[in-house]
Simulated scan of single mutants.
Amino acid sequence: MGQQVRVEPDTDGVRIIACTGEFEYGALGPLKAAGEAAAADPSVSRIVLDVRRVTFADSSMLAQILLMLRAGRLVLAGPLPPQLDRRLSLTGVRDMFTVVDGVAAVRAR
């Protein structure tokens, strides 16, 4: 199926990175670039990773999400796909993330 990473224009310091499709080692370049750019931008107060349309995420995507979490401003917009939710839970990191129901919920915060 492939994957797509779309960065939406910032609104009130919120940068939304929307992910669609399958994310595995070798296909993380666009996600990594978007996450690094958001973390390096001082005008971005919140990074929202919209994962609602992720159909597969391997351990390398999990590692990338954890790197983005280190910026201290990451919110996951869900609902989390079952496979990703299971991977986060099995690795014991699920509770480290703020997860909200959809992008609109983040903007309302």
Score class of each variant (00 low, 15 high):
94 R>W: 05
86 R>S: 07
96 M>L: 15
89 S>V: 09
70 R>S: 14
85 D>S: 10
64 Q>K: 11
17 I>C: 13
10 D>L: 01
2 G>T: 06
51 V>T: 11
57 A>R: 03
78 G>K: 03
4 Q>Y: 09
81 P>V: 03
98 T>S: 14
73 R>L: 14
62 L>K: 09
96 M>T: 09
13 G>A: 10
18 A>W: 09
27 A>F: 06
10 D>K: 00
94 R>K: 14
40 A>G: 15
41 D>I: 11
39 A>Q: 15
24 E>F: 08
105 A>I: 02
63 A>S: 15
106 V>L: 06
48 V>S: 00
56 F>A: 11
52 R>L: 12
106 V>Y: 00
63 A>D: 14
50 D>K: 04
78 G>L: 07
82 P>Q: 03
59 S>R: 05
5 V>D: 01
62 L>E: 08
10 D>Q: 03
84 L>A: 03
90 L>N: 06
28 L>Y: 08
59 S>M: 06
79 P>E: 04
19 C>M: 15
34 A>R: 02
9 P>V: 11
81 P>R: 02
21 G>L: 10
23 F>A: 02
16 I>P: 01
82 P>E: 03
101 D>L: 04
5 V>P: 01
7 V>M: 02
9 P>K: 13
62 L>F: 13
23 F>Q: 01
34 A>M: 09
101 D>R: 06
46 R>K: 13
40 A>V: 12
45 S>D: 06
26 G>V: 03
99 V>Q: 10
